[in-house]
């Protein structure tokens, strides 16, 4: 099968988000954060990962999209704040995400905000590339 183009991936990811989150297609902009902008709650991330598996024929292991085990590691998160080591680890574990939003606010709750539509598209691109 020919490799999917960025646009084709983007299109399918948009369909997944429209179905999983009940949002309008035009709300699914590349910079939109799944939680803050599109209203995703914790169960929605599982729903999205199941739907991505089906749409792209890939397998997403638990913790692969959002590395929750790192977020429970006291070396990486202390008093609700992501440490320097934690930020480095997250950047390694989530190479598809842009952590610029965490430069000024290290709150652990902020981590989900790096999960934008664009990050999700890059995540799928990396998965498809194997």
């Amino acid at each position: 099968m020919a490799a999917m183009s960025r646009e084709e991936i983007q299109e399918k990811v948009t369909e997944v988000l429209v179905e999983a989150l009940g949002v309008d297609e035009d709300e699914v902009e590349p910079t939109a954060a799944l939680g803050a902008d599109l209203g995703a709650e914790s169960i929605d991330y599982l729903d999205i990962s199941f739907r991505l598996e089906k749409a792209f024929g890939i397998k997403i292991e638990q913790g692969e999209m959002i590395p929750e085990s790192a977020l429970q590691n006291p070396d990486y998160v202390s008093d609700g704040q992501v440490t320097d080591a934690g930020l480095e680890e997250l950047k390694k574990l989530m190479p598809y995400a842009d952590f610029a939003v965490m430069e000024d606010d290290r709150s652990v709750n902020k981590v989900v905000d790096v999960f934008t539509v664009d990050a999700l598209v890059k995540f799928v691109e990396l998965k498809l590339a194997g």
Binding site: L46, D47, F50, E53, K54, Q62
Partner: peptide, 10 residues
């Protein structure tokens, strides 16, 4: 059952 993993199921 469409999908089940440690976190949940669809």
């Amino acid at each position: 059952l469409d999908r089940i993993d440690p976190a949940g199921a669809a």
